[in-house]
Computed example of a mutant assay.
Amino acid sequence: MVDIKKVSLAPPREKIEFTGERCTPWITTGLLSEHLHRYLSVLELVEGKTVLDIACGEGYGAALMRNAGASSVLGIDIDQEIIVRANRIYGREELSFACGDIREDLNIPSKKFDVITCFETIEHIDAQDAFMAELARVLAPGGTLIISTPDAKRPGAENENNPFHEKELSIEEFQDLVGRHFAYSEMNYQRFVCGSVMSGPDGAITPNQSFWERNGFLAYENTRGLQHQKFAIISASDRPVSALSTGLLHDGHILASLRTALRAATE
């Protein structure tokens, strides 16, 4: 597996305002960290590979993967206007965007892509088995699908009412769905956190990890792992899968924006 040290993207020439659903690179909340971290976690898998980015949205994730060494990336989204913009802003050799409806056949040749990324998408459709079968059809033998969705049982989910979500899945339901279409899979979890990080002498997160979480005034519990996960991320294939590059995304710009918002609200 390639060790990706750096990846960058020039600021797009045209800004898109945040509507509340589609993530854009200009927002300064934990939402961007969550979306961006999913793309960063697959960069080591896409080196030299043909990649399909399902529900690519604004296009920054597909562009990051191409910049990280993917041999080609195709982004697909249902919004014709956003696809025209993505081709205008990011499109170049071996990086293109096309309009497509994930509720229908993708109109793509079978076994075409080495890697498929599908982040925060499956909860937007009801015919989920048919969609998974279509992803399996266009994935090349030995290829990898990386797919994520919010956990339907996440804390506070009962108080959320996202009009864009057709069918949210629990982690067990998500695993069962993927397992019906792929012989091998590996689960990872994600949530937004804010706090201190302690690393080993080489700067890496040590195998003997602690995950301290506050649950009262100077009351903390060492859970030894990520608890109360918000998102489930599965790597799936017809062969044993490579582990994702899990870890921490630290974004000082987002944290500074959160502090500014809190200070303004307090005042």
Results as ranks from 00 to 15, higher is better:
101 D>W: 05
105 D>T: 13
210 S>H: 14
123 E>G: 10
114 D>K: 12
251 D>V: 10
225 G>K: 14
127 A>Q: 15
128 Q>H: 09
47 E>K: 13
52 L>D: 03
163 P>G: 08
237 S>W: 06
1 M>I: 05
157 A>N: 13
72 S>W: 00
134 E>G: 09
74 L>V: 12
40 L>C: 03
66 R>L: 11
119 F>S: 14
256 A>Q: 13
97 F>P: 01
128 Q>M: 11
25 P>M: 03
19 T>H: 00
201 P>T: 06
32 L>E: 00
244 L>M: 04
37 H>N: 04
231 F>R: 09
62 A>R: 10
143 G>R: 10
80 Q>I: 00
155 P>E: 13
247 G>Y: 06
108 I>Q: 14
232 A>L: 05
252 G>Y: 08
236 A>G: 11
97 F>G: 00
182 F>L: 11
203 G>V: 09
25 P>T: 03
112 K>D: 04
24 T>D: 02
185 S>V: 03
116 I>A: 09
252 G>Q: 12
238 D>L: 02
59 G>Q: 05
249 L>Q: 09
30 G>H: 02
239 R>A: 14
36 L>C: 01
18 F>H: 03
172 E>K: 13
130 A>L: 15
112 K>F: 01
190 Q>M: 09
190 Q>G: 08
177 L>C: 06
183 A>W: 05
67 N>Q: 14
216 G>F: 04
82 I>A: 01
133 A>K: 15
149 T>F: 04
251 D>M: 10
39 Y>R: 02
119 F>H: 15
237 S>V: 10
230 K>L: 14
132 M>L: 15
225 G>P: 11
49 K>E: 11
144 T>Y: 09
118 C>N: 15
166 E>L: 14
128 Q>W: 08
227 Q>P: 03
135 L>A: 08
153 K>A: 13
94 E>M: 00
164 F>R: 12
18 F>D: 05
51 V>H: 03
29 T>W: 00
96 S>P: 00
250 H>G: 12
87 N>E: 01
224 R>E: 14
26 W>T: 07
185 S>M: 15
252 G>K: 08
186 E>K: 15
185 S>L: 14
258 L>Y: 04
221 E>K: 13
212 W>P: 04
210 S>C: 08
200 G>N: 14
71 S>Y: 03
48 G>R: 07
135 L>W: 09
215 N>K: 11
41 S>G: 04
5 K>E: 11
189 Y>M: 05
228 H>A: 15
122 I>E: 13
238 D>H: 08
165 H>W: 10
247 G>W: 07
184 Y>K: 09
251 D>T: 10
163 P>A: 09
244 L>G: 08
84 V>Q: 12
175 Q>F: 03
145 L>C: 11
210 S>W: 04
65 M>C: 06
265 A>M: 07
91 G>V: 00
46 V>K: 04
256 A>H: 05
23 C>P: 02
